[in-house]
């Protein structure tokens, strides 16, 4: 009886150990990505099979793009605040509201131009096949038909 119990417990222990070992081995690349300084870039490197040189170039482009992106964010917030101020209490459109809406639309198209330029640059850094895949993916994410309709996609 004791021997049977020992075999049962040993089997369970072996099963649990196998689970733990395989799980931790298979999870280690994803965990390494999460722990990296720029997890989203680590993901990009892994997803699009970038060499170290390609990854370095993509990281440089990314770092150069971010200040422009932050500046755009600041302008968007400013214009949104301005529009909210104009809309507060308004019962009809005014020339100021029209002008704010035009500015917002111009800002949005400026943002999209800036992003698209960056995406093209990044895709050209990648091997052609991966570059095409990257462009198809990112266009779907950023320029999808419901862009901006739900806040996030």
């Amino acid at each position: 009886m004791k021997r049977s119990l020992f075999i049962l417990v040993l089997g369970l222990f072996i099963g649990a150990a196998a689970y733990g070992c395989i799980y931790s081995v298979c999870m280690s690349p994803a965990r390494a990505m999460e722990r990296s300084q720029r997890p989203e870039l680590a993901w990009l490197k892994e997803e699009f099979h970038l060499s170290d040189a390609e990854f370095k170039r993509v990281s440089e482009l990314h770092a150069a793009y971010l200040p422009h992106c932050r500046e755009m964010c600041r302008k968007i917030d400013e214009q949104n605040a301005q529009l909210q101020k104009l809309l507060a209490g308004a019962t009809n459109t005014t020339p100021e509201i029209d002008a704010a809406l035009v500015e917002i639309a111009q800002l949005r198209s400026g943002c999209q131009r800036m992003m698209l330029r960056h995406f093209f640059e990044v895709s050209q850094t990648m091997p052609p096949e991966q570059g095409s895949r990257y462009l198809a993916w990112v266009k779907g994410k950023v320029f999808a038909a419901d862009y901006g309709m739900n806040g996030q996609k």
Partner: peptide, 14 residues
């Protein structure tokens, strides 16, 4: 992480 990549780059999703 892929969503995060897009959010970082798109001012309307940041």
């Amino acid at each position: 992480l892929s969503e995060r990549y897009v959010r970082v780059l798109d001012p309307y999703q940041t």
